[in-house]
C-alpha cells in the first residue's frame, strides 16, 4: 500500500483547458516578444548516437547567435548534450551566457544500477555541465516503488552539487495524467529544480495538457512553500505557434514570475528555425522559405 498520494487529474478537463489556451490569438508585438522570449528559453538539443564534436560545435554557435542578421535576438538558454560532449560544448560556449546541460543517469531508459547513474552525473558535472537532465526510473514509478524513485532523485540532486537538476518524467511512458501528477509531486519533493516532460525518445513527448498538469503540480508546491520550481517541455515542440501556446499556458497558469529562462525552458532542436522564420515574417511582412535559415 503506497503511502504517497497525489491529486487525481480530470483528463478531459485538462485537455479542454489546454485546447482553450491554444486559441489565444497572439499577434504583432505580442508575437515578436513571445518568440524572442521563447528563443531565450530554448535548450538547443542534440542527443543522437551519431553526434560528433563538429555537430555539437555548430549547434553551440547557433545557440549563442541564432541568426547573424538580427543582433537583437537573444541567445538560447542552454545546449543539451550527452556527457561525452560537455567539454566540447563548454569550450565552444566560452564567453557566452549559454549554459551546458547534460543528460545523465543512464539516459534515456534509466535502466542501470544507481551507482552507475550517480557516477554518470558526477562526471558530467566534473566536465563542466551547469545543468543535469536526469531520467526517473519509470519501472519503479509504475510498479509503485515510489521510495526508489524518490531516493534516486534525492541522490542525484546531491551528486549534482552546484549544477541544476532537471528531472525527466518521460510522461509518454507513464500512461495517465494521474501518474504524471504523482511523478511531478515526487520529483519536486525529492529536490528537482526543474521537472521535464520527456527524453525525446518516446512518443508522445511533450504535450500541452501534460505540461499543464505539471505546471499545476508546480503551482500547488508554490502555494504550500513559496518555492518556484521550473518546467521544461521537451520533444515535440517544433513550431513557433506551439511555442507561443506553451508560453500562454505558463502565463495563465503560473503568471509572470515563470516567464523567464530561469523557470521555463523548451527542449527542442527544430523549433529554433521555425521561430526565426516567423520572426523574419513579422519583420518583413513576407512568408519565408526554410532554405533561407541555417540548418546547424
Amino acid at each position: 500500500m503506497p503511502l504517497f498520494s497525489a491529486p487525481a487529474v480530470n483528463a478531459v478537463a485538462v485537455e479542454e483547458r489546454a485546447a482553450a489556451l491554444a486559441k489565444r490569438s497572439i499577434k504583432k508585438g505580442a508575437k515578436v516578444a513571445g518568440l524572442k522570449l521563447s528563443i531565450s528559453m530554448m535548450d538547443l538539443t542534440t542527443l543522437e548516437g551519431k553526434d560528433t564534436a563538429g555537430k555539437v560545435r555548430q549547434m553551440c554557435r547557433k545557440a549563442v547567435t541564432p541568426m547573424d542578421s538580427d543582433p537583437t535576438l537573444p541567445s538560447c538558454a542552454a545546449v543539451c548534450v550527452y556527457p561525452n560532449f560537455v567539454t566540447i560544448a563548454k569550450a565552444a560556449l566560452e564567453g557566452s551566457a549559454v549554459k551546458v546541460a547534460s543528460v545523465a543517469t543512464a539516459f534515456p531508459s534509466g535502466q542501470s544500477p544507481i551507482a552507475v547513474k550517480l557516477d554518470d552525473v558526477r562526471r558530467a558535472v566534473e566536465f563542466g555541465a551547469d545543468e543535469i537532465d536526469m531520467v526517473i526510473d519509470r519501472g519503479a514509478m509504475l510498479s509503485g516503488d515510489y521510495a526508489k524513485v524518490f531516493d534516486e532523485i534525492a541522490a542525484t540532486k546531491e551528486a549534482c552539487g552546484p549544477a541544476h537538476l532537471k528531472v525527466i518524467l518521460e510522461t509518454g511512458e507513464l500512461g495517465s495524467y494521474d501518474v504524471v501528477r504523482k511523478a511531478s509531486d515526487l520529483a519536486i519533493a525529492a529536490g528537482a529544480d526543474f521537472i521535464k516532460t520527456s527524453t525525446g525518445k518516446i512518443q508522445p513527448a511533450a504535450t500541452p495538457p501534460v505540461t499543464l498538469v505539471m505546471l499545476e503540480a508546480i503551482r500547488d508546491h508554490f502555494y504550500q512553500t513559496g518555492v518556484r520550481i521550473g518546467m521544461k517541455p521537451a520533444g515535440g515542440v517544433r513550431t513557433a505557434k506551439q511555442a507561443l501556446h506553451y508560453l500562454v499556458i505558463v502565463k495563465e497558469t503560473l503568471g509572470d514570475a515563470w516567464l523567464t529562462p530561469d523557470l521555463f525552458r523548451f527542449g527542442a532542436s527544430a523549433l529554433l528555425n521555425d521561430v526565426l522564420m516567423q520572426l523574419e515574417k513579422e519583420r518583413t511582412g513576407n512568408y519565408q522559405a526554410s532554405e533561407d535559415f541555417s540548418k546547424d
Binding site: S25, R219, Y223, G226, K251, G255, A257
Partner: peptide, 19 residues
C-alpha cells in the same frame, strides 16, 4: 498564513496585443 500570502502575479510581463 505565510504561504497563504504567497501570490501568483498575473501582470503584464508578456501582454497579448489586441486581436
Amino acid at each position: 498564513q505565510k504561504t497563504a500570502a504567497l501570490a501568483l502575479e498575473f501582470g503584464k510581463a508578456w501582454e497579448y496585443a489586441p486581436a
